[in-house]
Amino acid sequence: MARPKRSPLDYIRGQIWVHEVAREAGISSLSQIDEALGFTKDRSWYKYRRGENAPDKKTVAEVETVLPGTDSWFYEGPKQIFSVLECTRIQDAISFLKKAGVPTPEDDDHLDGNFYINYLSRAGLSQLNFHAEYGRQRGNDDSIFAWILGAAHSEARFLGNTYSLELVVHDCLEYFHRRYSIAPERWEHDVDIKEARAAVTAFGITKPYVLK
């Protein structure tokens, strides 16, 4: 039987998943991971980390039996980013962003066009500003950049407003690079992200807006 075809996003999923599995297992080296999980068969842990291979559903499920909750890092990603990127309807993207903890504007119950614009803009740009200020003062978990990317991406895809994504894409992809060693260009299978990066490059911006 032929192996299931992997998508570019599956390799990114695997990179994030293996980092978080190792963290949950409390190990400092992937050479220790099989022993830590009680596995007798070697997996392709280093290939997962480098994005050269992606774990299949069986492997993810086997790890889940030992470390409950780790499968969410593969299927949903930090702050639901994978779920959001795969959405084909704005309503679904909003639902996942809210599940990830993105603040909800006051007109939550009035789901018209203004709601979506206000929600996504607030979730993306104002949260970026909030994080920048909060981070300077106290330090913070920068996984907030994952939901900023989701919100700005949804705004570009579903509302046709690319400004937010162009403004935040560099910082957001830098977060994944710094945290999970995922090179920014690996996201360019996504047309919205690719176009946002191209727009940033066209303006000659070579450094992140916020991260120092």
Rank of each mutant, 00 (worst) to 15 (best):
R43D: 11
Y48D: 03
T88E: 12
W45V: 09
G14S: 02
E20Y: 00
E76V: 03
V21C: 11
E20G: 02
F39Q: 15
S29M: 06
Q91L: 02
Y48H: 02
S29W: 04
S31A: 14
V21E: 10
D92I: 01
I81D: 05
D34W: 01
Q15I: 00
E20R: 07
W17V: 02
D42I: 12
D34I: 02
Q32T: 13
F39H: 12
P78R: 05
V18G: 00
E64Y: 13
Q80M: 13
G14W: 00
P55M: 06
I33R: 09
F82G: 14
R13S: 07
I12S: 08
S83N: 14
I94F: 01
L67D: 07
L9H: 12
W17L: 04
Y48R: 03
E24G: 05
P55C: 05
K47F: 04
K98W: 04
S7T: 11
T59Y: 05
A54W: 02
L9A: 15
P55H: 05
G69A: 09
E35I: 03
A22T: 02
Y11F: 11
F82A: 14
P8W: 07
K99C: 07
D56P: 01
F39S: 14
L97R: 03
T40K: 13
G14I: 00
W73Q: 15
T40V: 10
L30Y: 09
A25D: 07
P8A: 10
A54D: 06
L85C: 14
R13I: 05
K5F: 10
L97H: 04
K41F: 08
R23A: 03
W73N: 15
D71I: 04
E52I: 05
T88C: 07
E20T: 02
F39N: 13
L37N: 08
V63I: 15
K5C: 13
R49T: 00
L67S: 07
S83E: 08
R43G: 12
T65D: 15
D42W: 11
T40S: 12
K41N: 12
V21H: 08
D92H: 02
R13L: 05
C87L: 05
T59N: 08
S72Q: 08
